[in-house]
Write a protein that binds this DNA or RNA. Structure first.
Lengths: 252, 252
DNA sequence: ATGCTGCCGACTGTCGACAATCGTCAGAGT
DNA sequence: ACTCTGACGATTGTCGACAGTCGGCAGCAT
């Protein structure tokens, strides 16, 4: 029925040439569509809190600013709407999504769903998977530690989420990764929007270390409880920000 | 918050006209964009297995078939790509996503993550939430039962997924709903693609009844185990279809 | 002063057209 | 016979333009 193209398993043609000469350093040069680049740019701005909730993003204006036509801009905006970072009002354009307290609880509850399951599956996966996950998480914790040293709020929260993303990725289920990336973007947007003072670095490191230890030891119940607590605490700090005075408020 | 129309209290001249005439029955007439309608149409076709995996969906062709321009078609296709029902190859258009065995395992594993968490949260929610969920699930089971009577494969699988969607929805977390809707669409596409004979109706009903009972009784561990088994069995039947002979194969 | 009606500007939704990119295939060269 | 090169056809990525829709405001009637 279907004609197999019979092309020799693409890419093996010039490989040897590339291999001997130093050409292998050629990185697959930026092959992204305009809309993807716009989408990533805007996504980053939203995540970092540079755009205020409710702010209008008119296609025309963005297109003019970037000196492109409206088509790719429109495409980029639509992507972000599907990621729930923008909200769309019919015939009235898109605006930056505002997050209410209940949104934050939803986000963290959903994160809990995915992280818990991922953790559970990693433990099920046996010692090999567990070891690999532990290594990756320790590396992520190191990145978090160095971000803490720099003291940049945004880098810290990004590194924090990166730790959790690493946990989910270690389960090896791309569907979970996709779902989690949407949630982590929303969570980051929430965190960076209300400029909460980060907790003492040690506390953050220790708490993540707890997760690593529980995972390494294969203590399922301990791990699941730790994840749940970790996220619950984080969400409650985000939703109860009025105490902007002393209490070491801590996002996650 | 919401403006009550203030009709009543003697104002019987002007407002009463609206009140007495049947205008209140005017339902907010179909206000969907072209791209949304196209998207839903295609989504349904993919879910029902009318489009073969790998089949090319050229923008031009679809636009001509529907007698619209390429813009809304393109938008619709992009939506479906984000839902993982279509795959996009750069400059070569989109085609219907094929699902491998590992995809199926991923989908069912991810479903397990969300359903389990939803079930857990429903139990946490107390007797009120639990009762409402039980009612909704019983209604969903009834719908499944009537679909079984009709014997239409697609209606049965749709009703089956509807049951699980109801379970997730009962947790009251829209983020979980969104994530689950993507997974359920993929699962349905998998099921309807390989035309597997449905299991005996009684078996299907009983198994879902088990879930309802465990939920109503608040037996968390039983419920979680049941969900896990339920999905594991379903996935294994989908990924081991070669026995198209006798064994009552059963998708889910 | 209050409420309704019709215009106005701004923006999106949609359209047709052009240009860039990719896979294919014939053909030259070895 | 095999490999590489170049052109071809098809399809997407992008563009500028037009029409439809929405919120806001002025103007009129009450």
């Amino acid at each position: 029925m279907r004609r197999q193209p019979t092309f020799g398993a693409g890419g093996d043609r010039g490989e040897s040439i590339v291999a001997v000469s130093g050409l292998s350093k050629l990185k697959t040069l930026e092959r992204k569509s305009t809309s993807d680049r716009i989408s990533e740019e805007l996504r980053q701005m939203i995540i970092e809190g540079q755009l205020r909730p409710g702010e209008q993003l008119a296609e025309t204006r963005i297109a003019e600013l970037l000196d492109v036509s409206r088509a790719p801009v429109r495409e980029a905006l639509q992507q972000l709407v599907q990621q729930k970072l923008l909200v769309s009002a019919r015939n009235r354009g898109v605006s930056v999504a505002p997050f209410t307290a209940s949104d934050i609880w939803e986000i963290y509850d959903a994160r809990c769903a995915i992280e818990s399951h991922a953790a559970s599956r990693i433990i099920d996966g046996g010692p090999g998977v567990r070891a690999r996950a532990t290594d990756a998480l320790q590396a992520a914790r190191d990145r978090l530690r160095s971000a803490l040293k720099q003291g940049d709020h945004r880098k810290i929260s990004a590194a924090d989420l990166d730790f959790h993303t690493t946990l989910v990725a270690s389960a090896g289920n791309s569907r979970l990764d996709d779902a989690y990336s949407i949630l982590s973007a929303q969570a980051l947007a929430c965190i960076n929007r209300l400029e909460i003072a980060m907790p003492s670095g040690d506390e953050l490191i220790d708490e993540h270390g707890l997760l690593i230890d529980a995972l390494a030891a294969g203590e399922r119940e301990v791990l699941l409880t730790a994840i749940n607590d970790h996220l619950t605490v984080a969400a409650s700090h985000l939703t109860a920000p009025p105490s902007s005075n002393g209490g070491p408020s801590r996002p996650r």
